[in-house]
Design a protein around this nucleic acid. Structure first.
Lengths: 166, 166
DNA sequence: CGTCATGGCGTTACTTTATAACATGACATC
DNA sequence: GATGTCATGTTATAAAGTAACGCCATGACG
């Protein structure tokens, strides 16, 4: 992680402010607290347009609060994951904000290998099939990781119609 | 990795010998070589009943060939993955033999959180759905990671009918 | 009021996983 | 016998993640 420098999470827009407030409320309803640190971490992840590594988040955090150690960041990220606000992206060792902030759930992510962006898709569709297979194996599902890699629309356009300098 | 001590890959049975030979042939057909090291690594992974970490493989290798360094193991594992003989299991940082050794393909794995075993299932079924979604996003798929976590049949039986000592 | 449990965070040190970069060996080809 | 190429060896280090301990604030409870 660390390449693809892009919107790294300074200053939330109103949309993000609202999501942060919703998240705080959601946590409160569950008897949990979205502390300032956790809120800030969520803000950072929200503001990014691609999965961020824990160490990326650390670095960004360091800008306002001075150096924080890995456990601090991992704890906050794990909390956010446990609340279903953030997904862990195994195939890139990163974290993305959940696009439809709700309760903990499995994500289906389309991750672009060129720009690193990721898009989440509600994945009702497969659930049935996977569950059928699981039933056949008498396997009790706890979680599902579904990550699709490839090239996104924008990146495909970019190489299909490149700005040529002959 | 490293817990769950189990069949760690000493001496292949005839079935495994056959798979190794098939693999060698397959590589040859593709102009690649299943060198002794690669063959041995494949043998180790084949003999395990669960995903092995690269460092597990290193340790087992060390028994016959003395210490080998990480890059050596990773290179062999990457080769095997590139040939579709082995799958990398992201959610456990491990490697499992592909159950139906063929050409490179995406696996759908059911991984037990208790015993660590993993079962591969041919995953034609979802391909269609994922591809539909990808098409809607104009996303060009390169690979799909599908890992299901939970508890396997055996482990469920074990806790459902535990051997009680009252 | 005291003190005690709890939850969140800080800090240190460390483990585990993975890779970069460069050297060596073995074999093929000209 | 020089040159190329592929696999492996070697050294060092990067990147990702965790264990263990301690501190402090808050709030419950006697």
């Amino acid at each position: 992680m660390g390449k693809h420098g892009a919107e790294e999470g300074r200053e939330a827009g109103t949309a993000q402010r609202r999501r942060l407030d919703q998240a705080a409320e959601l946590c409160a309803k569950r008897g949990q607290t979205l502390t300032p640190l956790r809120r800030r971490v969520f803000e950072i992840v929200l503001a990014a347009d691609r999965p961020l590594g824990a160490y990326d988040v650390m670095e960004i955090l360091a800008r306002d609060r001075g150096r924080v150690a890995p456990p601090t960041v991992y704890r906050s990220l794990d909390f956010l994951v446990s609340q279903g606000l953030v997904h862990k992206v195994l195939s890139v060792n990163g974290f993305v904000a959940c696009s439809a902030s709700a309760r903990p759930h499995d994500a289906q992510l389309f991750i672009c290998g060129s720009c690193g962006s990721s898009v989440e898709v509600a994945k009702k569709s497969h659930a049935g099939l996977i569950e059928e297979e699981a039933a056949a194996l008498d396997f009790a599902i706890e979680s599902v990781v579904l990550e699709v890699h490839g090239r996104c629309h924008a990146c495909r356009l970019a190489t299909a119609n490149p700005t040529v300098h002959p």
